[in-house]
Design a protein around this nucleic acid. Structure first.
Lengths: 91, 91
DNA sequence: ACGAATTTGTGCGTATGTATG
DNA sequence: CCATACATACGCACAAATTCG
């Protein structure tokens, strides 16, 4: 889980919220909590769960899409791609 | 207190602008002009009002944040903390 | 065919954080 | 200290795509 220091320091000390969220989502995918070929919670739901704006959600999701870990179907949802599709740029 | 002349602030020569501004903001907080738990004008608005750069605004605000008189919520604004949060280092 | 609900896409405005010259 | 640009973040509103009754 992610702990934000809401109201206090910000992304200055550590990294941006969207980067932390992307890491959290990635862990959920790699751990199997978000299963391959299955949909993850909607952006609205992720908003609620993590208490961040859609900006942050969309940045994080967009990052994983670029990594080939997630696939977006407009009007439908966002699903997990199987590992053979991943192209991890490293970090 | 900052003096005003024809709508323009008059800055003292012997003190940094940010310190004078910090003192001004502090007085506005202690006088109740900036009310507890309410947001103060945005940095951009303060820029306009005092005719200084954001550098100066941020230095002054940062000073009051360190004193526990202001709280910054990125993407939201800056608000006044109640007196019980203040930790005045002296001066 | 229709309309409602859901989900993502997009744009706007505002505010603060960081970086650079 | 000033000026500027860009990144990060929040909130809202509306559009487009899809699903379902």
């Amino acid at each position: 889980m992610i702990e934000w220091d809401r109201g206090e320091p910000v992304w200055a000390e550590d990294s941006a919220k969207w980067k932390q969220l992307a890491q959290e989502l990635r862990e959920r995918i790699e751990s199997g909590r978000y299963r391959s070929r299955k949909r993850i919670p909607s952006q609205r739901q992720l908003e609620q769960e993590f208490g961040v704006s859609r900006d942050v959600i969309r940045q994080a999701v967009g990052h994983l899409v670029a990594m080939g870990m997630l696939k977006i179907d407009p009007g439908v949802g966002t699903s997990v791609l199987p590992p053979e599709n991943w192209r991890l740029p490293e970090e």
